[in-house]
Design a protein around this nucleic acid. Structure first.
Lengths: 343, 343
DNA sequence: CTGTTAGCGCTTTCAA
DNA sequence: TTGAAAGCGCTAACAG
């Protein structure tokens, strides 16, 4: 029995050609310091023998793996998928592969993943912290070790030395709410997510500020911070919220596409007409805007572009002549409002 | 300036403790052959010195990376995401990480990815071929090299030595159509995807067989094979299909959730009542069933479980005492029909 | 129980 | 333009 597959390696080529391993290595590398004729002989022989370079050996020797580690809170959220697509696209162009891990919304998994990425498998790390993440020591440790890292989305604390990319959440919701106000709406409800997430806090802030800026009274009764993380398509919380309301809202600003959709379903069920009686705005614009009838106006975030930007920053760090005193960059991406039938 | 970070390695610990590298290695491995007191000293020192094992060196030396490479046609299809979640869950339990690449529905990218996975970075491969994939030589090459691989979903040709996992597409659509027939529907339309995809062919086959089995006449006019791959939320093809129809269908069996949704939107727009005038069934049940009003009856495929099963097979291959004459396993998973308001 | 040593396959000085 | 040789950090066989 043959021991596994004994792959052909540089040595085999070298021996067959009666030259040194070093020369073969150089030839395969298109190194100009090797005679053209030699290079050609090597290339031909390598192909003929079915040579495949060993990535691991290369990495050990060169100190580079060309892999970027990505940690996201979950796989099945359209936002993260879009960001990952953007990351992958940019990374691929620059000859990096990506290794995605989910922290499953758990701080412990996040830490575990980070530790595993510290083991030299990846050249750099992209991380979107979970809502549970309150301590940033695990991240700082990475930074201190000099491992390039870029954070995105839900970043609560600024970590010195770590770039981070986010969207202008507060401005986005400010504009969206202002848009409703300018349409003459006054009893504007707010539906956000768990308060632990910085993004929801920021979106809430934008809502409040817009209302205040236009002197619209704020009713506690019209504000809901959903506690569910999961993107369910039935949410009793939202249903209860509207059913038990003594004020009739004439608009609802929601903090995710899904909340927007659930809101529309609930309101229709309660007899409201959209957009005649009430306008609804979603947040994200990740494909759900056109599913429903009426179609839903959404704050659109540039998720794919975000992924690309993140990766650009990371690759910059990777190429940087190890300036340990790397100045942290915080990038905020702009959003836009995509108008549809729900407003 | 310090040259990058000089990570502490086994040698450093060994020197500090005046013992050999091998002992340190064993101690860290919890190898019982090392004295307890030594092990403890090593562990303590390792922690104190901030030792982190080098995964790459480990892999080169051991010949294992504990990484599974996954190639899917695209990132942003709920089906693939669910499968990947299943893969990840199972892999994680068995101490493997997964490296996902998208072939972007292109045969060339698929090949490129496969070649890159041949370079020893991954211990095994999971692949869902694109619709463009007609030649399987690139896959056979992997098999011949003895690299463990499992195929899933869109497999047209049986590759000797490669397990593959799929769902019972034909049976699934047979049952779904039969369900409609038993409800008294007779003018049952079919909406499928591009014919290049084996899954769509199989689903079509099930439709035809069910109709024949019940002696229902088949009208060419009621059959559409969509040419769009993309999951758009407006599809002129489907709209045209129903608008130009001379027969009024009383049911529509569609081959994806999205086609189902588009069908419902179109039919409602054309004045049909669902389910009174016409029943609609989607395929996949990947979260869209409950979005719309009315909710959509769907064929439900066990995507997450599929991912787990796939990985189970792969890990079996990985652990197998290199039986080159590995008998190919073809696993077909059962589906079910989830009844909702559209039927 | 511990140490010595020979790799794993490739890159990269330094010499020739 | 090419070769010899020293690693990269770890594992594992063998010896003691």
């Amino acid at each position: 029995m043959t021991l596994k597959k004994s792959r052909v390696k540089l040595e085999d080529i070298a021996r067959k050609l009666n030259i040194s391993i070093a020369t073969v290595s150089r030839a395969l590398d298109e190194n100009p310091r090797v005679k053209l004729s030699t290079r050609e002989r090597v290339l031909k022989t390598a192909t003929a023998m079915g040579y495949t370079p060993n990535q691991i050996a290369k990495s050990l020797s060169s100190g580079k793996t060309n892999i970027i580690g990505v940690i996201i809170p979950r796989y099945d959220e359209p936002f993260f998928i879009e960001v990952c697509r953007g990351i992958d696209r940019y990374a691929h162009k620059h000859n990096y592969k990506i290794l995605i891990s989910s922290s499953r919304n758990s701080f412990e998994f996040e830490r575990e993943n980070l530790i595993s990425f510290e083991r030299g498998l990846v050249d750099g790390i992209i991380l979107s912290p979970t809502h549970e993440t309150e301590m940033f020591t695990h991240i700082k440790k990475i930074v201190n070790k000099g491992i390039p890292i870029v954070l995105f989305d839900n970043v609560r604390e600024e970590v010195a030395g770590a770039d981070h990319v986010m969207i202008e959440d507060d401005k986005a919701s400010f504009s969206a709410v202002e848009f409703l106000i300018n349409k003459g709406r006054k009893k504007i409800a707010f539906i956000g997510g768990i308060k632990e997430k910085q993004v929801f806090q920021d979106r809430f802030k934008g809502y409040i500020e817009a209302m205040k800026a236009h002197n619209i009274p704020i009713h506690e009764e019209l504000i809901l911070h959903c506690s569910s993380l999961d993107r369910e398509f039935e949410d009793p919380e939202i249903h209860e919220f509207f059913r038990g309301m003594s004020i009739q809202p004439d608009a609802v600003f929601t903090c995710t596409d899904n909340y927007g959709l659930l809101t529309m379903k609930t309101l229709l069920k309660l007899g409201y007409k959209i957009p005649e009686d009430v306008s609804v705005i979603g947040f994200g614009d990740l494909g759900l805007g056109d599913v429903f009838v009426p179609s839903m106006t959404c704050v659109s975030q540039p998720s794919f572009e975000m992924g690309q930007k993140i990766t650009e920053l990371l690759i910059n760090q990777l190429n940087e002549p190890n300036t340990m005193k790397h100045r942290k960059k915080v990038i905020k991406l702009k959003t836009s409002l995509v108008l549809r039938d729900s407003t």
